[in-house]
Design a protein around this nucleic acid. Sequence first.
DNA 1: AAATTAGACTTGTTATAACAAGTTAGCAAA
DNA 2: TTTGCTAACTTGTTATAACAAGTCTAATTT
Lengths: 258, 258
Amino acid sequence: MTFPLHLAISEQLRDRILNGSYRSGDRLPSEHQIMAEFAVSRITARRAISNLTQQGLVTVQKGKGVFVATQQKVTYSLSSPLTFLETDIARQGVTVTVQTLVFESVTLPIEVAAILKCSIAYLQKKVLLFNGIPGCVDVTYILPELGKAYEAELLEQMTFTTLERNGMTIDKIDATIECTQADYETSEQLEVTLGHPLIVYRHTAYTDDRGAIVHGESISRGDRFCYSVSIDRNGSRDLSSIGTKNRIKDSELLESLC
Amino acid sequence: MTFPLHLAISEQLRDRILNGSYRSGDRLPSEHQIMAEFAVSRITARRAISNLTQQGLVTVQKGKGVFVATQQKVTYSLSSPLTFLETDIARQGVTVTVQTLVFESVTLPIEVAAILKCSIAYLQKKVLLFNGIPGCVDVTYILPELGKAYEAELLEQMTFTTLERNGMTIDKIDATIECTQADYETSEQLEVTLGHPLIVYRHTAYTDDRGAIVHGESISRGDRFCYSVSIDRNGSRDLSSIGTKNRIKDSELLESLC
DNA sequence: AAATTAGACTTGTTATAACAAGTTAGCAAA
DNA sequence: TTTGCTAACTTGTTATAACAAGTCTAATTT
């Protein structure tokens, strides 16, 4: 098995990034400079850069160049059932804005109908802007009576925030967290490249008296967000802030998002 | 902004996959067939296929062709603090084998030293094979006295399994779940392409008397694995994994391992 | 019949070439 | 001074071409 040229080059550039020769935000050599330095064609140079892009080490800006990616993530804490709690994220120095794309009553896909135990519900599609930059697409179904009752509020903020503000207590959330890659539509909405890594939080919220009332998924940029959870065998969950390791200071965060 | 040819083609092929024209496991048209059908060069045809690969819709096999990816994921349940519980995964019809790459005493990186509150510990690197196929790389640091005491067992199975079998009760786990992309080393270990999406479970395990005893991360193929968690506002944690009705008490849980 | 080989597929790597399009700095005109 | 435009960068798209290497089938040889 021969070791491809493009890989040899991208590994070498990777080393320079990791050992600090190129620092966070620095510009890497241009395609032409790589062609000259390693005596390769443009295809190979571009492939080397593409390898780095796919590893999330650099980002490319047309007309400008290739830059070392800064990677520090905003943490969604799952310690409380209120996901995307504005105050929680705000503690990390981020302003969250909700931009509603869709809010309408729809006939449910069978999977969702089975979960919510009804055939019609409100479908919400929202884009979450963090410091004005798109970071999350949220698609949530909510029981029709709740959707109708709180429409005005739901259009302006996250679902759980609205429910809590109106005195509805979520008793339980079943959730899965997984990885996907951006399709064309999502890549446009989140302003990332096709195939960009995404972290998906799929959830169903229950109340003791109504059963499942909300089901949906939040699709966030995998390079900017992560989830934290604290599991306590005793059953008493730690509701205070955890996972401070991954949290970042306000000033740094602002830079990383801009 | 002009819509690139390669994107137009990959979107068209994507439609065929989603609408069922090409079903799971089917072979897509070869590069030459795409060149002919869409009257484009090989570069454009390959780029179109590359777009699909990056979205995780297809996998490419050299000499064979391009195949529609089957995506069903194995779920790691975080309902109990025993991650990677063999019995839990086994319930999903998967056989797990542990292959230890590294087991040695090392001086800790500062971040880890701060967490474990010591400067030397055992470093374990393991590859988890699911039905014989590599699916997860686990890198875990464990306190020296524990590493030494249970070395033989730790070499053969997952860390938490060993600890529980020896009567050590994990009282708390702090964890974060995030997304990354495979670097060259990881891509070789997990037999995936460079940049393949990965889901990372980073955890610190505590006991009431010793404090932090284990810290590490499990890096799994993002296309094959996901995590599930159930959050209960009442504070009584549901120990049954999602989709299972039986609730297991802590004491019974330990027995069920043996 | 079994083993080998050749040929026709497949994808992977790499080169050269041309044009399109976004960015920026500096120069020239208003 | 300010505005506007050009020129020189940057990355993006696409074509043609050649060879390497993995896979499979079928014909050939043992």
